[in-house]
Design a protein around this nucleic acid. Sequence first.
DNA 1: CCGTCGATGCGCACACTGTACGCAGCGCGG
DNA 2: CCGCGCTGCGTACAGTGTGCGCATCGACGG
Lengths: 243, 243
Amino acid sequence: MAAKTNPIPSVWAREPREREQPALSRAAIVREAIVMLDADGIEALSMRKLGARLNAGATSLYRHVATKDELMELAVDEAFGEITVPPADSPDWRIAVTECAQSFRATALRHPWLASVLGQAGLAYLGPNLMAVSGRLAELFTAIGFPDPNRALETVLPYVIGMSTTEAAWLTAVARSGETEASFIARLMPAAQEAAAGHELLADAYATAAETHTAVDPAQLREAKFNYGLEVILDGLALRLPR
Amino acid sequence: MAAKTNPIPSVWAREPREREQPALSRAAIVREAIVMLDADGIEALSMRKLGARLNAGATSLYRHVATKDELMELAVDEAFGEITVPPADSPDWRIAVTECAQSFRATALRHPWLASVLGQAGLAYLGPNLMAVSGRLAELFTAIGFPDPNRALETVLPYVIGMSTTEAAWLTAVARSGETEASFIARLMPAAQEAAAGHELLADAYATAAETHTAVDPAQLREAKFNYGLEVILDGLALRLPR
DNA sequence: CCGTCGATGCGCACACTGTACGCAGCGCGG
DNA sequence: CCGCGCTGCGTACAGTGTGCGCATCGACGG
């Protein structure tokens, strides 16, 4: 402390060494990577910038992480840890499935880079959090009583993934534009209508979309859309439940 | 020709110039880019390699394409041109929807890089082919008679996108391994079972999956899974059709 | 036939990426 | 006390997208 308040400009007078940071660790690296990914998107994450953020050189990270791909894998699993799946003995199965679907969607929207990574790597990862989510989903869908729980799960999940990643990609585009979602839509729709020239119905759809989006919060519209599709699928699944 | 069979080592004796290639053009660039993407995946495409493939320097491409992102956008639209949508007056709406869903899936599996691009950029593109597909889909779903055709479409489409991109990502991982899909599964499943330790149901699912996959062609299993989920959704949508 | 001009291709250069390698310092066991 | 393994870092290399200015070409007006 003395040396700090009395800054003698000599290399010899400094304190022996300041191990201020809790050093580098795999957990700290992954945590900071997620912060950067959330803030600036996937293409803004580089090992050098990440190292700098941790008061470390770029190549120091490689003591704790084999490769950047592995780091992304760890980040994905970490994000999956935020997904909640209701217990298998939930009283109302539709509410239970809806809850975990919404949890998945919320996680994907909180971490829009997930969409990119899943598009490239799929679900071949085997991290503990991903396994936990898969396991709990299997339990839930089995307990519901579907004749083929896996098939049922593999109907809902693609829908949730598809909708969430599409939404996330959209939000990424919005974020890159620097505008609010509403103003981005307002700017995009005329171009869309022009591009849709020759496809009457489509142009009309864009026109009415532009109107509704100025009246209603776009985020609410997206959520309603998500829930509508989910209800459709749950109806379809209900037909397959033994009575 | 004389100069070629008689190679005088002089700059002055050579033929005036051979404009053998039909030169560079936006269409040729996009076409060759798709060939490379299909063959070696998305991370193998670089402007330099693409230029070399066209007997051109890397930066020559920029006379016809503003940026690599724009090139990808063009490639995506080109791929969307392969998707077929049945006419709006199809007799059986379930068959019609199934056909275009399968067409979408087939296209995504033929061009697995589509999954990556859609995950990053979403459907905000406005290319002519994408507009044409959207337009025909709108017509089809309107003609079917849903009370809210857009909502119906936006239920099926995310499912198709989610399942197709997941499958494409999986196939990409398989391709990177250099093995056949069956042997890749055989090698992966033990690891998956180990990772699923503590989640009984999941481990069991992996075990039975490993067995069935050795008995049945994995590609057929994937197709059946896709069709099952699609049927579920169509059942859910049918409930919303006015009788 | 010549001069000019716009379009096209290309070499160079810059900033940046992931990551392999070998060295320097630390804390700890013998 | 010595040595050793673990950790961080500096350097370096191959490769990326792309801006810039020059060389070359076909076509066209005089």
